[in-house]
Design a protein around this nucleic acid. Structure first.
Lengths: 337, 337
DNA sequence: TTGTAAGCGTTATCAG
DNA sequence: CTGATAACGCTTACAA
């Protein structure tokens, strides 16, 4: 299984390595005959340039790293898709790293990406230490997506974590809800923190109840959403509406409601995050706070390309909007308390 | 932003490149002092070996390619996760390629992977031409996953596309259904073909109706599931039960039922494919035909490692099983026809 | 145990 | 327009 090198192509075409290289990389200074001979030989032999050798010579690998916390989260699945498609359009290959909501795996992947000499990294960072700081110090272009680190100024594209939640709370209070439970994301992430802050602000602004025990701190995984729902519904004075900070926790929470025979929409209002298809299938379909994930991914790539090109793009925020569906119905039944 | 090379480390440590290299790659013939000096220098300078240069010298890149049709399909999302985690445990990085259900993109990614000199490829193939045949001829170890090409013998791990469907049809006929509509996958994939064949066999075996128009040919995407549901429900003599060949088409189909106010479970029995969380949230939760995706991913990696090691592992089939939930209830209401 | 030197496959430079 | 040659960063005989 010997590799076919440019030398083989050159010999087969009866020219030098240099000429072969020029033809294959589209250099203008080549004669038509050389071009024909080389192209024919390359095709016949099935030549593939060795990307390793090439990027050892150049300093570009035409590869970007994408560091995500969890590929199975539909939000990040969609984001991965968007980033990958956009990167492809710039001729870049995407090296995915799945940190698995785990700082050590993130560190390992940063290590590998740095070793692979990726031309840039798009990351939804966890924590702010370990290899992350090395990555930032390394000089490799970096763009943060979804999450931000306050301590570090790096161009980022993040969701607007305020408007959607304010709208949701307003929407719920307008429907008579005063006890709105919140299943929060981890406070180690900017997204988790900002959404919780917005929730608190919104409660204050609307005059809804602000008991601390209406808040459950989850970790963006389904299991914690389930635990949150159980905890909140078991309160002596339980919430009449629930708001969850991401899609997986929403799934967990809705599952618990089903288990307990609590009818969403009639017994309990529910607002989820992220507009994933499955949420429209639930009966009633879920009201959600949605962000344009595709736009986030595209923008992150565009910004990274700009950084790679020497620019320093401004950070962006992707607006969130409330999509009202059946889980937060117009008319309220009697509420106790 | 100059790269720190092994030469810098060697100089800082006061040894030769060779010694530095030996220390850094754990070669036994090194003195304790050398080891200490080199490690200290490497740490201090933040040295990262250049993977390109390394794999140009060696012939291993410690990288495998994973070629999938669609990352946003939860089935492939889970599969990607499983493969990536398993590969990681072998010290391999996974290069994802998302063909986007599109042969040209698949070809491009095969090209890139070949150029990147991946040590092996795990693929859910589309079609059987283009660069796929070049990939197979190239001698790079390949394992197919989920889908198989009859024309080519390559080790593969695929779902059992028979048992689950037979069980599902038996289950439905036992509940009185005689008109079972089927939303099939594309006949260009082995999975699509085998599942359709099993459906037909199962109908014959149970004596259910076998009208050709109970079958709709979809493409594994949500939109075609919706179209399939519309088409089948609009039949003069519509089915009383629906079976869909993957999760995305199931989502599309259930969406149509909701739109039309057709109550799943009571008006129409429904069996989906793939045991995704969201299906348990739908009311009633969906009966599904499930495969152990994690096992598929792990096994594919294990097999690929075997091929890379010179072995020729046998192909495997992952059993499918029927998980009965509320969408195929015990008691039937009156059926027309 | 250590150092020197060759070579992996490409591309860029510099003469011709 | 073409060819010889050096260089990218690393590993590994081969010598010492």
């Amino acid at each position: 299984m010997k590799q076919i090198t440019i030398k083989d192509v050159a010999e087969a075409a009866g020219v030098s390595k240099a000429t072969a290289s020029r033809v294959l990389s589209g250099h203008p200074a080549t004669s038509p005959e050389a071009r024909k001979a080389v192209e024919a030989a390359a095709g016949r032999l099935g030549f593939r340039p060795n990307a390793q050798a090439r990027s050892l010579r150049n300093t570009r690998t035409q590869t970007i790293g994408l560091l995500l916390p969890d590929v199975r989260n539909p939000f990040f699945g969609d984001l991965a898709h968007a980033v990958e498609q956009r990167a492809r359009s710039f001729g870049y290959m995407t090296l995915f790293g799945n940190a698995n909501e785990n700082v050590e795996q993130q560190d390992e992947y940063i290590d590998v990406m740095l070793s692979q000499r990726v031309d840039g990294v798009i990351a939804a960072p966890q924590g702010d230490g370990g290899n992350l700081s090395q990555l930032l110090r390394s000089g490799v272009p970096v763009v943060f997506v979804d999450r931000v680190l306050d301590s570090i100024k790096v161009p980022s594209v993040s969701p607007d974590n305020s408007t959607g939640i304010h709208d949701a709370v307003k929407h719920l209070t307008a429907r008579g809800h005063r006890r709105i439970g919140y299943i929060a994301g981890p406070q180690s992430t900017s997204t988790g923190r900002e959404r919780l802050r917005s929730y608190k602000e919104a409660l204050a602004a609307t005059g809804a109840d602000t008991d601390a025990d209406l808040i459950f701190l989850g970790d963006f995984q389904a299991a914690s959403g389930a635990e949150g729902a159980r905890t909140l519904l078991d309160l002596a004075n339980p919430p009449t509406a629930l708001l969850a900070a991401d899609s997986l926790m929403s799934i967990g929470a809705v599952g618990v409601c089903n288990e307990r025979g609590i009818a969403i929409g009639t017994d309990l209002a529910f607002v989820a995050h992220d507009d994933i298809d499955a949420f429209t299938l639930i009966n009633p379909p879920l009201t959600v706070i949605a962000h344009d994930i595709d736009a986030m991914g595209r923008l992150a790539v565009d910004m990274l390309m700009s950084v790679i090109g020497g620019g320093s793009p401004a950070s962006h925020t992707i607006p969130g909007r409330l999509i009202v569906r059946g889980s937060t119905p117009e008319f309220e039944k009697e509420r106790q308390s």
